[in-house]
């Protein structure tokens, strides 16, 4: 057979798929590359670390080797008061830096130049750890947010910075976002108010530069529950969040959200074993009208998953 259909066909299929991939993958990449990171983008990046989800530094996806976000009201080195309090992102020695730091081009042409030249971001070293912050600077008459390396600029070390922040002001944001991913919260909640009437209820839709360097973005596609991109602006009560996670029906009787009581772990804040069976029995009595009040929920331990999750919500989802 001299004429082989499959040879001509393979070339035609390859050519058509190639053109299609040029249009749908290569051309958009030019647009994505020129996007300048916003404050939201830089904040998410610095507080999440390199990758949320499976990675070399966190193979079991438990939120290991993530940066810690702290809210500082005094200078860790000089002890001077900082007013208003500022956010600092603490990378302890060995914790991999965020994509914005490792690959500055991720943050856009102007922001990356500001971060490198003014913020001295390039001087940070993963082996020694670093503390980052976000500052605002002017280029050609326009304001830009950029990353500054506070270890190089002010001499703040990770250990000093963590010590200067109280436990209340220490937020395990990176670990909390990891819990959000592994527990599948994003199968029902979205992080994407739509560009329709949606934003009047759920807040402003995200901007172009809000995602630079984020991985994974986890918008969510199937909304069985409210959008939570700005949930902490609507409700900032830690107590409400705690009750809602332990059993959503405590605060919202018609909710279909699963109970996340298992995120409390084995022991509570005082090191006592949590008696889930007793709680369930008492809760059943409450539902049956035998008890007037529902049982108290246990206080969670400082290193529990639920603490990190609530930290992330109250810090990042504003």
């Amino acid at each position: 057979m001299s004429f082989q259909q499959h040879k001509l066909g393979a070339a035609a299929i390859g050519g058509m798929l190639g053109i299609s991939m040029c249009i749908t993958l290569m051309f958009p990449s030019f647009d994505f590359r020129s996007a300048e990171s916003t404050w939201v983008g830089l904040d998410k990046n610095l507080s999440n670390g390199r990758v949320i989800g499976f990675s070399y530094e966190d193979p079991l996806v438990i939120g290991a080797n993530k940066p810690i976000t702290v809210i500082l009201d005094k200078d860790p080195k000089t002890g001077e008061k900082i007013d208003p309090p500022m956010r600092a992102y603490v990378y302890e020695p060995g914790v991999p830096f965020a994509p914005a730091v490792r690959h500055p081009a991720n943050t856009g042409p102007t922001v990356s130049q500001l971060s490198l030249n003014v913020g001295r971001m390039g001087e940070a070293s993963e082996a020694e750890g670093a503390v980052f912050g976000i500052n605002r600077g002017e280029v050609n008459g326009k304001d830009w947010d950029y990353i500054e390396n506070l270890t190089a600029l002010k001499g703040w070390t990770p250990a000093d910075t963590l010590r200067a922040a109280t436990d209340e002001n220490t937020r395990y944001v990176g670990k909390g976002k990891t819990v959000y991913i592994t527990e599948g919260c994003w199968w029902c909640h979205t992080l994407l108010p739509e560009q329709t009437q949606d934003w009047q209820v759920f807040g402003a839709p995200p901007m172009l530069g809000d995602f630079n360097g984020e991985m994974p973005t986890a918008f969510g596609s199937d909304r069985k529950a409210p959008d939570i991109l700005h949930v902490a602006s609507r409700n900032s009560s830690r107590e409400w969040m705690d009750m809602h996670f332990f059993n959503p029906r405590l605060v919202q009787p018609n909710s279909i959200m699963p109970r996340f009581d298992y995120l409390w772990g084995e022991t509570d804040a005082h090191g006592n074993k949590i008696d889930f069976d007793k709680w369930r029995t008492e809760y059943k009595e409450y539902r049956a009208g035998i008890r007037i009040y529902p049982p108290e929920i246990p206080e969670y331990a400082g290193d529990s998953e639920v603490r990190a999750l609530v930290d992330w919500i109250l810090t990042s989802l504003k």
Binding site: P28, F211, N212, G213, E214, M215, T217, F219
Partner: peptide
């Protein structure tokens, strides 16, 4: 390690 909107898209 492609990130951000590139990853979402």
């Amino acid at each position: 390690n492609l990130t951000g909107l590139t990853e979402a898209y």
